[in-house]
Design a protein around this nucleic acid. Structure first.
Lengths: 343, 343
DNA sequence: AGAAAAACTGAAAACGTTTTCAGTTTCTTA
DNA sequence: TAAGAAACTGAAAACGTTTTCAGTTTTTCT
């Protein structure tokens, strides 16, 4: 069942069928109706491979996601998929690990699948203009961060939160309660993670309170994965008890921290306060409920798609959209009390 | 950059390039090496639209997933994507809600995207042979269950656990500890969920112990979503205190249950034991750690893809693969003690 | 009524592969 | 060493669309 069959059936040329299919204006109403009827009667569905080949582009956008295991990213990914399908596009996704980089994976995806656009999700976007230029299609970063000294944000489209400011704010929430000895739980920075900016926010917040950075209070997990975070906190607790709060840069890590603290006999929030950033669903159900700055997950995915389609269809220039988090108060914050354990 | 450029560059015909690309045997080693080198040097990537058009089929498989929000399904989905990409196929995903059915969504996906095969993930597969026949491509159910009285499992390929037996076993674990008053936490059955078979396993396990079914101990959540599960347990606890254990049919719901019990002042496992099925990552970090029958998540996704590709490429017939869960002992099991609260 | 403009239509050439089939080499074997 | 077989190669036809360009109608205007 091809366009040719429809053409014969309805007595016009395949060109006309194609025009009807693509809503070209140059078709008489009468003919259009006849063709539509034929399409209906024959249950004709266009062959998208042929269409794509002919157009030298597909109606597909790619999503390159770093660290897809993270529940936060997973939720964003789902909202992206929903938005993409609603716009009659389709989505291919490509999970990458720490050894790959988003530009080259994205570029090869674009080439092989003839994608129309790309969304980068998760990780850190710190490529040079030259690297970016190897991407031949528009793209949007729906991602945690870019890093200091790298490409200016204006050079590409993005949906993002101000990692630095959000981290600063988180730590301030702790210092406002009187905390001075605040540990930070990071995914290691060497895997292109978001840690750098949030860490800087942490440092500066401390500094603004006249607290000097204590290297012993940096908990660096091997990755963002909950298991690694748990191990990191567990090891940290073996050596260090001189702190009253932890700032976790992601909910999944915060959940691991609660457990590790519990296992070590430390009560949250009495012995240790905890705050983090993300707002994944399950963090509403920890004991106590995780206090966290919630990112507008659904919105972020949807906006990323909207921006991309806008650039694609209306030839818009780059667009940067900063979104804000919202504090979800749980039960992991308290004023510091005298430390039970002293070094 | 097309196959033609590669042909010119390496001084052979496009036919030969195509043969190298497709691993045809009829190419001299020497020539093959030369072509490969040219491909490498030119950074040539085949145009998949053209390839698909020529082959009259795409190298794409579709995944129709019901209830993608569930962390368990999400993990399976990721392992499917990984396996699909490793096999040089690509994947399009289609999330469906309670109002859509998998067959018709799948069928329209196949038609419009020229898919080669389909995987159904999550939900319950209970279609008639007539409905199945509307699907023109092979498919695999990587899904919780099919239901009683519906199509026989032999009629299609699947990767599955024996929901009935696993539920039976879970409840037996509780009765072996001495529990008699065991509640069950279900997602409502009216949304094509997995509840039916697991519920039957629960009922029969009780019966085998001479315990009669107490309708008051059925906690039916509006959906599998953690929020709905939480509300359901919360409501349940307001009315009912006469039980010593809960069997939750999914980890996400179990996590909600822990929190609801905690909020109600009930200790797990002292006041209420809890067991569930799934083995999602975060359930290792609840307090106490959730005791659960872990499904081989990565394996299930990978096998689903392998089976599908096997059917596709080797014209194999249907294949049913039953996998087993493995108990992960956490801290949510204890012998029943005298009830603190009596009705 | 005739000419110019507008509206519509179709033939044919792309798009970049795979595959068929007919050839050309190179190897075996008697 | 000739002949037949095996191994390799390439020209050309498909795959099903979109798009360009050259018509052909129909409308509009004087």
């Amino acid at each position: 069942m091809t366009i040719k069959d429809v053409a014969e059936y309805s007595g016009v040329s395949i060109t006309t069928i194609s025009r009807v299919l693509n809503n070209h204006p140059d078709v008489r109403e009468e003919v259009r109706a006849k063709v539509l009827k034929a399409i209906e009667e024959l249950h004709y569905v266009p062959n998208s491979s042929a269409r794509d080949l002919s157009k030298t582009q597909t109606d597909t956008i790619g999503v390159v996601v770093r660290g897809a295991g993270n529940p936060f990213l997973n939720s964003v990914l789902r909202s992206i998929e929903t938005a993409v399908r609603k716009a009659n596009y389709s989505m291919v996704m490509c999970q990458i690990g720490s050894s790959e980089d988003e530009i080259s994976e994205g570029a090869s995806l674009v080439r092989s699948k003839r994608l129309k656009g790309l969304i980068f999700l998760g990780g850190r976007f710190d490529y040079t203009p030259e690297q970016i230029a190897t991407l031949s299609v528009p793209f949007v970063c729906c991602t945690y961060t870019n890093s200091f000294g790298s490409l200016n944000r204006k050079a590409y489209s993005s949906v993002y939160i101000d990692d630095y400011a959000e981290a600063f704010r988180s730590v301030k929430t702790l210092t406002n309660l009187g905390h001075k000895k605040i540990a930070v739980l990071l995914g290691t920075t060497c895997d292109r993670s978001i840690s750098e900016l949030r860490f800087k926010g942490y440092c500066d917040a401390l500094e603004s309170e006249g607290i000097s950075l204590d290297k012993n209070l940096i908990i660096e997990a091997k990755s963002f994965h909950i298991d690694d975070a748990f191990k990191a906190v567990e090891n940290f607790l073996k050596k260090n008890k001189d702190f009253t709060a932890i700032f976790s840069i992601a909910d999944a890590m915060g959940i691991a921290a609660i457990k590790a603290l519990y296992n070590a006999g430390l009560k949250v929030p009495e012995d240790c306060s905890l705050i983090s950033i993300d707002g994944i669903e399950v963090s509403k159900y920890t004991i106590p409920t995780l206090t966290t700055f919630v990112q507008p997950i659904e919105k972020m995915g949807r906006y990323a798609v909207e921006i991309l389609l806008d650039v694609l269809n209306n030839n818009r220039g780059n667009c940067q959209l900063k979104v804000e988090t919202l504090l979800r108060e749980g039960g992991t914050l308290a004023k510091p009390k005298n430390l039970i354990f002293t070094p």
